[in-house]
Simulated scan of single mutants.
Amino acid sequence: MGASVPGRYWHGLADGRVQCDLCPRECKLHEGQRGLCFVRARENDAIVLTTYGRSSGFCLDPIEKKPLNHFFPGSAVLSFGTAGCNLTCKFCQNWDISKARANDRLQQQASPEAIAQAALDSGAKSVAFTYNDPVIFLEYAVDVAAACQDVGVKTVAVTAGYIGEGARPEFFGAMDAANIDLKGFTEDFYRKLCTASLESVLDTLLFVKHETDTWLEITTLLIPGENDSSREIGALSEWVTEKLGQDVPLHFTAFHPDWRMRDISATPAATLKRARDIAASAGLRYVYTGNIRDEAGQSTYCYACGACLIGRDGYTITSWGLDASGHCTSCGEICPGAFEPDPDSWGPRRTPLVFAAV
């Protein structure tokens, strides 16, 4: 546990370097070098994952915090991450983890089987790979997902979707649900603030929606003056409607000053509510606001009759208008997602878990 393991998705180059193909960065490494993500390195002429079996911490969270509003609402999810990231977002809200060097934060160790059993024992419906991007620890995430599947626990990826074409099938094939960050809707935004590419993320969204059975929701963090114009929000919403479909839930969440953008003000609640109205006008049926207090913007409504299907006050379920098969109890229209006859009642609790030393 906690040792380097062989990595997948790489090839040797004619000049003697090794290229990592896991994400679109395609880091080209000499012996002993690490990729931008820091956790993938070249050792003995191959790529290895240096953080297998090690975590920055484990916690039981509400599933709505991921955010996932149509995937077993009200349930607990066992959340964990490692360290590092393959993006360089100046506005990162988890920078202490995503920007950490591997040994700075990885204080806990757990095997895939131990994580799956802990989720089962705690009553969590699912395990979420989150806090930092799970793409960079693909081998560990896929093994944990397999162990979870063996005991009937679902798996969730919270990711920026910056993953290579060759790795997408294995990674998302292991996930029951995913929330993918669509951070903005211009190449300039991705290049300037993330040193990444919008096109690669759009390709991932299209792949997950049309070539997998993974339940998909999308999050856009609105940053004042950067990606919050009505024009950009409208273009993003229209793309989601036309390319992914009206039923894909879209979450607009509030930025707060952090990492290298501490001089930018927090997102006003009015901006998120405006974005929600724009997305609804573009045809999206399930649009949510996050990181603010907004019961109307966080509840789920039947697109056909307008009845409240799932009332929410923050992370607490306040009402339930779905029947046992996920249909509106008022008009009978289906609500897309994964639901049980009655919601769980985990609520807003956040409960850290500590694994025994191994």
Rank of each mutant, 00 (worst) to 15 (best):
F71I: 08
F172C: 05
I218C: 05
P343G: 06
F355P: 10
Q117F: 06
D150M: 09
I233E: 04
A83N: 09
F71L: 08
C331K: 04
R25Y: 01
T241C: 14
V156Q: 02
H11W: 09
L22N: 03
A160R: 05
E113D: 14
K243N: 10
W215V: 09
K66E: 11
S200Q: 10
L182V: 11
G326M: 13
G123W: 00
G314A: 14
Q298S: 05
R8P: 12
Y303V: 07
A46L: 11
Y301N: 01
E139Q: 04
W215K: 03
L22P: 11
R276K: 10
L22I: 05
Y162R: 02
R262K: 15
A235H: 09
L22R: 02
A147L: 08
A124R: 05
A160S: 10
V240L: 06
F58R: 05
A269L: 07
Y131E: 03
Q108L: 12
Q19G: 04
Y303P: 12
A119F: 09
D344W: 13
W239L: 06
A114Q: 11
V144D: 05
S122H: 06
Q246L: 09
G7W: 00
L60R: 06
A160P: 00
V354I: 14
G290Q: 13
S265P: 00
A357I: 12
V48T: 04
P134F: 00
A124E: 08
F71M: 10
S330F: 02
S229G: 07
E242T: 15
F72A: 01
L221P: 06
A146M: 14
M261G: 01
S237E: 13
A167P: 10
T318D: 12
L87R: 03
P62W: 12
Y288Q: 03
E139V: 01
A118G: 10
L60N: 03
G347F: 02
S4L: 13
A178L: 09
E295I: 12
A141L: 09
C302A: 01
T220W: 12
C59L: 06
W239Q: 06
C302K: 04
S265A: 14
I63R: 03
S325D: 15
V151E: 03
G12P: 15
A41D: 06
A146L: 14
Q108P: 09
G152Y: 00
T82P: 02
S230D: 15
Y52T: 04
V127E: 04
L13R: 11
M261K: 04
K243H: 15
